[in-house]
Amino acid sequence: MSLPIMGAPDKKAKKLTVYTIEECVKCKKPVKREFKDGDLVHKILDKCKDCNENIMISLIYGEAPKKN
C-alpha cells in the first residue's frame, strides 16, 4: 500500500456476508456458497462429478446483502 490515508469512516457501511466460490479446475463451473471455517483460497476440496478433476476454492470474498 503506497498512498496516505484519505477520507473518514463510512458510518453507512453494511455488514458483509462471506462467500466461498468453488470451481472445477477443468470445467471451470463455479459454485457459490457461504464461507465455512477452514476454507482457504486455492484449497483442493473434492473431485468434480462431471469430469473427475479437482474442485478448488477459487475465491473467498465479502458481499453486501442485496436489497429485495
Binding site: 458483509l16 462471506v18 462467500y19 475465491l59 473467498i60 470474498y61 465479502g62 458481499e63
Partner: peptide, 8 residues
C-alpha cells in the same frame, strides 16, 4: 475481509 470487487 476482501470484497467481491477486489477478488474479481
Amino acid at each position: 475481509l476482501m470484497t467481491k470487487e477486489i477478488a474479481e
